[in-house]
Amino acid sequence: MMIWLSMQRDFCLAIRQASDTLMPAVFFLLLVTILSIGTGFSMHENSISSIGAVWVVALFATVLGMDSMFRRDHDDGTLDQFLLHAEPLALCVLARVAAFWSISVLPVVALSPIAAWMMGLQSGLVQSLLVSLLLGTPVLALLGAIGSALVLEVHRSAALLALLVLPLFVPVTVLGVSVAASSVVGQPTAPLILWMIVLLLGTMTLSPFATAAALRASTEY
């Protein structure tokens, strides 16, 4: 019950602060533009590197919003209520991450076909890119939750957060790019997609507990 209320509140706040909510999506398109300029408009010549570029840019857009995942709740005291509440903290964390993903990351995923099209990816490959991003970005959000809980008490934490979580993003990035890349060379993508589901389920099971412990570390001492 409390979980739904918490998510409802997050969505409500997201609609009221529309300019903050749209920032990752705008940032995503901006990065795509800069990347295309920076590579001398040569991205469209190689499908695999344009897939990799879309993935990395989506990853950066996710990291951008991550810093504030628990910050607002911490500042206005909501987090203390979560800590005191009878509901397990891990469940509250999961709800928060789900809301964060739908609000800040889903728009980026939704824009990724446009970005892929702008980078000249063949339309047949967009589907596997979209699947890999839909399965991969929740993992990014769940791992990012651990990091943003750890740096909750750190002043100016954005750079530290990126340093902590980017190494953890390696496996899911490798798998995500491989899914899209194997569809470029015509190999079956199903086994890799199953591996991504394994990674998502594993992260979904373990990360809320690590995040909850990190939140306690940040607030109790």
Binding site: I146, R216, A217, S218
Partner: peptide, 14 residues
Amino acid sequence: QRAAMAVSILALVG
């Protein structure tokens, strides 16, 4: 204390 707990969690996740 806080640093020790945070570093322990990060080391385990890593």
